[in-house]
Design a binder for these strands. Structure first.
Lengths: 341, 341
DNA sequence: CTGTTAGCGCATTCAT
DNA sequence: ATGAATGCGCTAACAG
């Protein structure tokens, strides 16, 4: 591996001249610049990032922390990560992935040991213990999701209250007097998982405004649990004709329970799923969705952090995305009365 | 951030003594070692990885390359990545994620610029252009999957030929005279995607041995395509009672097509899916699966690379995993004759 | 416009 | 068992 010294020698200039030619931080005469770049070409020189990092105190690498222990894998986090990776690469950074559990502090180690310049946090809780830790050390970070208290923090998130309002309005317009939300695990909800808590708030609020009855159920992130939850739900509310699900892992079970109850989608039951457009496309038949813009969220998460790293002490940016609703085949007007059991 | 020099001063020893105490590469008297570690505690010292990397010429970081452009996202790659991340962290390494397309060489840049010690390759083609590139530079790497020519290379892969043989034997034992394989995109197959090519070979071979008729169809990785493919398949082969699918993204559509043809699983059609156990658990009703040990594959991929990095010039390790079959509710004895259309 | 020089934080060789 | 000194590859003052 050639070093900057090899280039300097070959081009007949000093080391610093090469460095400045490469960084463009100092004017270089066209002639010497040409000789330098010629040497770079001939030797296939690549500036060593470690040397550069040590001298400049910036590694040009960031890490994304995805704590896996408490969640079943699904595609949404992958979409965040892939999208963040793309933006990171476009901006000339590298992306590290840490999956340490919340107790383990491998994700913090990366910052402590100076291997990354900043962090992106995923799976953020309303009271996330990582936030005070990072603040105490003054480490730069951005969140995908947001904490209850978030003044001065950078984050991107879906506006889940709004998302549920969108779903409720849509279903209320179709004439449904009752709307059930199938949320995620109750444990998550109790642990203060933002999407869960904020969605329920959105449901309650919008339901009151529209004068419909809100119902909330929790489901584990798997079809079996979705099946059981939905089966019980339909039994308990014989006239229920509208279901919103937050839990994309459970959708298969939800649909199956509806069918096994002798009901049809969308004729008897309107189903609206909160999920990423990409995932919705993978489901048959097509689902009406409140779209979670995962691609945007991952990209903006990386962008916010990098901007913070490069912009010096720029003010934090908070980005609450409003959800769009895409009506597909799985929802229709209320017609459930005839099926009362 | 305290440095090793701060520790040395505080403990009243030289810098090198601190370094050796930390690395354990030289005997240190109990007394001074105690003073050193006390200082480390008091100052909350963390050795700077960049300084260490520059001096030792090892970053203790590896990268995993997951080219996304040519594939729809699914959970299987996420499982590889998460699992590799876990093993990487356990071994004291960091994991970088590169998702650059095959033409883009961002993944190579990481090695060129000395930011990582080695690479894990995902989505390996039979003739993968990355391999000769890496070999030319002498960069250490390991593959999840394997190329046609692989002598001297380290990899972990599922033995897809064996996997299909397992599926065929199982279905043949149930009495099925015809077995259809629903493979992935034809474009992938033609591009030499290993799992696709090797699975077909396994099917053909095992079918011949067992005297059953093999049928191969390709499907895009989505339920709609799976639906159409299966619908056409059932129309073309009215007595078909056994389907094996490689394409877990299409399974929903496959199942729906079977149902809409007036057939039942497992009474009329036996369905065997080649997928990860974790994903199988997410499907309702439960699927008989040829299990792809994604967790093992990701872990071993990282292990092989790290072992290569640490073991000096150890011989390459090739790890072809045999698949297990888990019979669940979706497969049963051949009974399709009565349904001939 | 260009060169000289002093680190960045740590590992390691050579002394003692 | 310990210290002193050198250098990893590069950046960025400082000095022309």
């Amino acid at each position: 591996m050639p070093t900057i010294a090899d280039i300097a020698k070959r081009a007949g200039v000093s080391i610093s001249t090469v460095s400045y030619a490469l960084s463009g931080k100092r004017p270089i005469s066209a002639a010497t610049r040409a000789r330098i770049f010629a040497a770079v070409e001939e030797l296939d020189f690549r500036p060593n990032q470690v040397g550069r990092a040590l001298a400049s105190k910036r590694t040009n690498a960031i890490a994304i922390h995805y704590p896996t222990t408490d969640h079943v894998l699904s595609e949404m986090p992958l979409e965040f990560i892939i999208s963040a990776a793309g933006e990171t690469a476009r901006r000339g950074y590298s992306l590290l992935l840490s999956t340490s559990s919340s107790k383990d502090d491998d994700w913090l180690r990366l910052m402590h040991e100076g291997f990354v310049d900043g962090l992106i946090l995923m799976e953020v809780r309303l009271d996330d213990p990582r936030v005070p830790l990072l603040q105490r050390h003054g480490y730069p970070f951005a969140m995908i999701g947001h904490t209850r208290e978030h003044s001065g923090l950078s984050f991107v998130d879906l506006d889940f209250e709004n998302a549920l309002a969108v779903a409720v309005n849509y279903l209320a317009d179709l004439g449904h007097p009752q709307i059930a939300l199938i949320s995620r695990q109750q444990s998550l909800h109790e642990a203060g998982y933002g999407p869960s808590v904020r969605s329920e708030a959105g449901l309650q609020q919008a339901a009151e405004v529209r004068g419909v009855e809100p119902i909330v159920r929790f489901s584990e992130p798997d079809p079996m649990s979705g099946f059981e939850t939905t089966r019980d739900l339909l039994a308990e509310y014989p006239r229920l004709g509208a279901i919103v699900t937050l839990n994309s892992e459970a959708i298969g079970g939800v649909m199956r329970a509806v069918h096994e109850a002798g009901l049809r989608i969308p004729d008897d039951v309107s189903l609206v799923a909160t999920t990423s457009p990409r995932i919705a496309a993978l489901i048959a038949p097509p689902l009406t969705t409140v779209d979670i813009p995962t691609e945007t969220m991952g990209r903006v998460g990386a962008d916010l952090l990098i901007r913070r790293l490069e912009g010096g002490e720029a003010e934090p940016t908070q980005c609450l995305l409003r959800a769009g609703l895409t009506a597909r085949g799985s929802s229709g007007p209320y017609a459930r009365s005839s099926h009362a059991r």
